[in-house]
Simulated scan of single mutants.
Amino acid sequence: MKPVRDDHGNRYLLLKRSERASLVRDPETGDECYVQNDRLEFVAESGLETAAATIDDPVRTLLTNVHDEKTLGLLVELENRGALGVRTLLDAYNLCESDLHGRLTVLSSAGLLAEIDVAGERGYRLTETCELALEAIRTDETAENDENEEPPLE
């Protein structure tokens, strides 16, 4: 499937092309329709990128930058506890300094974390992008469980 755009800027995935018209699918709705070929132009990205673009930006950013459960857990802990200093993160979560630094760098570069001052030392807090992404992927059951849990011990 090749991505195309019509003369109104709408993006589609090309399914079948004939002499005069092409069968296209809207990646957001799944609706299929025929569009005249002279109204279509090919887009310089893969069909998979076009399909991925149907996911909200914050969630896509989270999915493409969080590669394991420890990193996701770090974000959830910052969501639950608020901004934390680097020393607190090192002490509380049993990560070596280089692992923590690598995770914080990736998450900051992706716009999921912001560096701030916490009690006179370097710390981190979630960005609005990260908060939106976590909210979007959280289920009702997960939210209920979080409300009933005790905060983790330091």
Rank of each mutant, 00 (worst) to 15 (best):
L62Y: 05
G73Q: 14
P58A: 02
V59N: 05
I55Q: 08
D56A: 05
E77Q: 14
I55E: 08
L72C: 03
E69F: 15
P58Y: 01
L62K: 07
P58E: 03
T71F: 00
L62R: 03
A53G: 12
V66F: 02
V59A: 08
D57N: 01
E77K: 07
V76R: 11
T64L: 15
K70G: 07
V59I: 11
N65R: 08
E77H: 15
V76E: 10
E69W: 14
A52C: 12
T71Q: 14
E49P: 09
L62M: 11
L75Y: 12
L62W: 13
A51P: 06
G73K: 04
R60I: 00
T61L: 02
E49K: 14
K70R: 13
E49F: 09
L62P: 00
D68A: 08
P58D: 06
A52L: 08
K70A: 07
K70V: 06
L63H: 10
V66D: 00
L48Y: 12
T61G: 00
I55P: 09
T64Y: 14
T50C: 12
A53S: 15
E49M: 13
D68E: 13
T61H: 04
R60W: 03
T64V: 09
L72K: 11
G73P: 07
L75S: 06
L75H: 05
D56R: 06
L63P: 00
L75C: 05
E49R: 15
V76P: 00
T61P: 02
V66A: 03
A53T: 09
L48G: 02
D57W: 07
I55K: 04
A53V: 06
D57Q: 10
L75T: 09
E49Y: 12
T50Q: 15
L48R: 10
L74R: 10
E49W: 14
V59H: 03
L48S: 07
E49N: 12
T54V: 13
V76H: 04
I55H: 03
R60M: 01
R60G: 02
T54Q: 14
T71K: 04
D68V: 06
I55W: 00
R60H: 06
L63I: 12
H67R: 11
L72Y: 14
T71G: 01
L62E: 08
A51H: 01
L75D: 03
D56K: 02
G73L: 14
L74F: 09
L62H: 01
G73F: 09
